[in-house]
Every structure is written in structure tokens, then in C-alpha cells.
């Protein structure tokens, strides 16, 4: 019965699902290509296509710096988060010590934590220690909120590895560190990669820290910039320019998602089904 769905009903369902998933994306794409009065013609498609809005967006210093900030902050946070998570996940899976429940419990609590609750205190502290409106000021909170995801994904992945290979290396006289670096790391690479993609998506999506802990183009990220973007001039309706900026912000994640969809799906669901 698994492969039984061939009837017209299944096809209609599939078409509806794809349409529903893609229509809003097609809409911002279309809106971003509208020119002048078309923006307010209240139709789905533009009457004339133009790339003017993209020119506006890329000429806007606010947006280009936001793009730079988002890429930089997300990449740094992803790298550190995945490195720390790899160490923690290895310890959780391979070592016997009491702290491991604490780490897993902590990760679960952080994953459920209402981010808004700490924004005020962070705002206060960051201003007094000079982290407000800087990259590290965003990297640090991104780290702590992406760590749970990376730890869960990596722990689920590491559990399935053939650990006999590490045992063999240890037997042959390798130190733990050598065994870790030469045997475990290459085997774990696909899991680390999956965790990195998911972490990057998470960091790229952040809005709360982006608007609360930044104030200028020094550190303001794309989602935050989008919310405050008002277009090129007050005489133009900003919707088309915002749409263009939104499309630019969407392209990298959609590419990532499409290129690595198998890994993403496996990583997202690994913890929930078995864990």
C-alpha cells in the first residue's frame, strides 16, 4: 500500500501542496519585479517587469551592510556552535559521567526558552560592557540558542557510528585525541555538516536579537533591516523594494535547503522520532 498512491486524488493533493508552499514565494518575487504604479495595482503579476527594486536595494548602504552582517555573524556563530556541540555530543555519546543528563536537560530547556525574556537584561549588560551593536554581541546569544539543536542533531548522528573503529584505534595504541581526530572526525563529518546547515538556517532567521541588540549598520542583520526598511524615497511605495530585499535574503537559504534537503530532513527528524 505504500506505493499505492497513483490516482487523480493524489495528484491533485500534490499539486495543491506544492502550490500552497510556493505561492507566497512567487508573490514576493512578482512584487519585487513590479515598477512604479504597478506596486499598487493589486494584481498578482506586474504589467511590466523591472529590476529597479533590486538596484535600489543593492545601492542602499543599510541593506548591503545588513547582508554582510548576517552572513558574517551567522557563519561565525555556526562554526563555533558546531565545534562546541561536536565535543559535547561526543562526550554524551561516548563517555560515562554524570554531567551528561545535565547537558541534555539544559539543551532541552534552552530550546523551549522564551528568547524575549532575556532581551532586556542582555540589552542592559551589552550596553555596559560594550557588546551592544557589535558582531560578538550577536554571536554570543546566537551560539547559546543554536547549541541545543546542534547537540541534539550531532548526538543522534554519533550514536549510529561504528564505534568499534575507535576501539580498534585505541587498542592499537592511539591516544584518545588521535583516535578522535583520525577516526571519529572523518566518520562524523556528514553529521557535523548537517548540524552546520541547520544552525546556519536558525541563525539567519533570527529577528529578536537582531532588532534588540543592534542599532546601526555596524551589526544590524537582514531580518532586522527588512523590518525597518522604508525604500529609496518617501515618494515611492516601499513594498517593491522590501520585496526585493526579501528575495535576496531568501535566495541563500532556499539554495541551501534545496541542495542539502536529504540531510536537512534527516537531521530535523532524527531526535524527535527516536530520541
Amino acid at each position: 500500500m505504500r506505493r499505492g498512491g497513483r490516482g487523480a486524488g493524489w495528484t491533485v493533493g500534490a499539486v495543491l501542496a506544492v502550490g500552497w508552499a510556493l505561492l507566497p514565494v512567487a508573490w514576493i518575487l512578482s512584487l519585487s519585479l513590479k515598477a512604479g504604479d504597478d506596486v499598487q495595482n493589486r494584481r498578482f503579476l506586474p504589467t511590466a517587469w523591472t529590476l529597479e527594486s533590486y538596484r535600489v536595494v543593492f545601492r542602499s548602504a543599510l541593506f548591503t551592510s545588513a547582508l554582510r552582517n548576517s552572513i558574517g555573524v551567522s557563519l561565525i556563530a555556526t562554526t563555533i556552535s558546531v565545534a562546541l556541540a561536536t565535543l559535547a555530543a561526543y562526550a554524551i555519546v561516548r563517555l560515562e559521567f554524570r554531567g551528561k543528563r545535565l547537558v541534555l536537560g539544559m539543551a532541552l530547556s534552552v530550546a523551549m526558552f522564551p528568547v524575549i525574556s532575556i532581551v532586556g537584561p542582555l540589552f542592559d549588560v551589552w550596553r555596559s560592557v560594550g557588546l551592544y551593536d557589535t558582531w560578538p554581541g550577536l554571536v554570543i546569544p546566537f551560539l547559546s540558542f543554536t547549541l541545543p539543536l546542534s547537540i541534539w542533531v550531532l548526538a543522534a548522528f554519533l550514536r549510529q557510528l561504528p564505534w568499534e573503529l575507535e576501539e580498534a584505534a585505541l587498542m592499537d595504541g592511539a591516544t584518545r585525541w588521535q583516535a578522535f581526530r583520525r577516526v571519529v572526525v572523518p566518520l562524523a563529518a556528514p553529521g557535523v555538516f548537517t548540524a552546520a546547515i541547520l544552525t546556519f538556517l536558525f541563525a539567519w532567521n533570527d529577528f529578536v536579537f537582531g532588532i534588540s541588540l543592534t542599532s546601526t549598520d555596524r551589526a544590524r542583520t537582514v531580518p532586522a533591516a527588512l523590518a525597518f526598511f522604508t525604500g529609496a524615497s518617501e515618494f515611492q511605495h516601499p513594498a517593491a523594494a522590501i520585496a526585493a530585499a526579501a528575495v535576496v535574503a531568501t535566495v541563500p537559504v532556499v539554495l541551501l535547503v534545496l541542495l542539502f534537503q536529504r540531510r536537512i530532513v534527516a537531521g530535523l527528524t532524527s531526535g524527535a522520532v527516536k530520541g
Partner: peptide, 15 residues
């Protein structure tokens, strides 16, 4: 279908 569904998942909430 799966590919199409991953698009809303990946998109930024603000977008």
C-alpha cells in the same frame, strides 16, 4: 512535494 515544502521551512519568518 518535499522540496516545495522545504521552502517555507527555510524562509526567514520576517520574510
Amino acid at each position: 512535494v518535499r522540496t516545495a515544502l522545504l521552502v517555507p521551512y527555510g524562509i526567514v519568518t520576517v520574510v
